[in-house]
Design a protein around this nucleic acid. Structure first.
Lengths: 117, 117
DNA sequence: CTATTATATGAACATGTGCTCATATGAGCC
DNA sequence: GGCTCATATGAGCACATGTTCATATAATAG
């Protein structure tokens, strides 16, 4: 339909590898349990059992979720004896969380104002 | 384990509704096809068949993906006759994309430098 | 040593997801 | 009117995902 535009847009796409990793990253953030873990870790480090207590989730579910977050480098941890303290891996993560929250809150606001869904 | 920290972290968690919508949003971005659509739309508007050409995907797959993106207000569109031109819905979206890309590229860099996975 | 605590992991199962194929809608043209 | 082009949508299916339950590891206490 618009060959020049298509050509130009195609040239600007990120590399397949970056797209794949970024998609995995967003997918990992796209689960309420994992997202709540990330939100809980914004601003403080927490050990696994504290995370479970904050979320009201089982230790096993939290541990599985943390593994997924670790694999995408969204969180890191330090071990103190038998306790594992988790933190967000870098500043990008809380930026993503904050920017995402701003987006959903604005969307919600405009939805209330009557823009169609 | 640390009751005061748990209490404090619990109080700072975003509302369940915001978490749910944000998780849906990240999940929607967490698919290579939809993520490539968003990347293609960063900087220019495109019609559906152009998007399909850019991605090398079928019209049907693109249309299904666009619906998901629309429902989460990640894209919007205007109709000109029978052609639908799509754009990103707001600035937060390209910010999310950019910040996400920075994260994966830094993670990739530190992986090359030998930090363990 | 055994017991306990904190965390990690594997299997299994129910549910969800993204694609293709077929078809519907709807606008412009003849 | 009918025909074509651009897009949207529904059903169906192969595949992925998140949880629970049981168990493993690993550190500390007694």
């Amino acid at each position: 339909m618009h060959p020049e535009v298509v050509e130009s847009a195609r040239g600007k796409l990120p590399a397949d590898q970056d797209i794949a990793t970024l998609a995995e990253t967003f997918k990992t953030l796209g689960d309420p349990t994992r997202l709540r873990i990330v939100a809980a870790l914004a601003g403080q480090e927490l050990c696994v059992c504290d995370i479970a207590a904050v979320l009201g989730a089982s230790q096993s579910a939290v541990s599985h979720s943390l593994r997924a977050l670790r694999q995408l480098r969204l969180v890191r941890y330090r071990k103190a004896g038998k306790i594992a303290y988790y933190t967000l891996d870098d500043d990008h993560i809380s930026t993503l969380l904050g920017e995402g929250l701003r987006h959903v809150r604005e969307s919600e606001a405009s939805r209330r104002l009557g823009r169609e869904a």
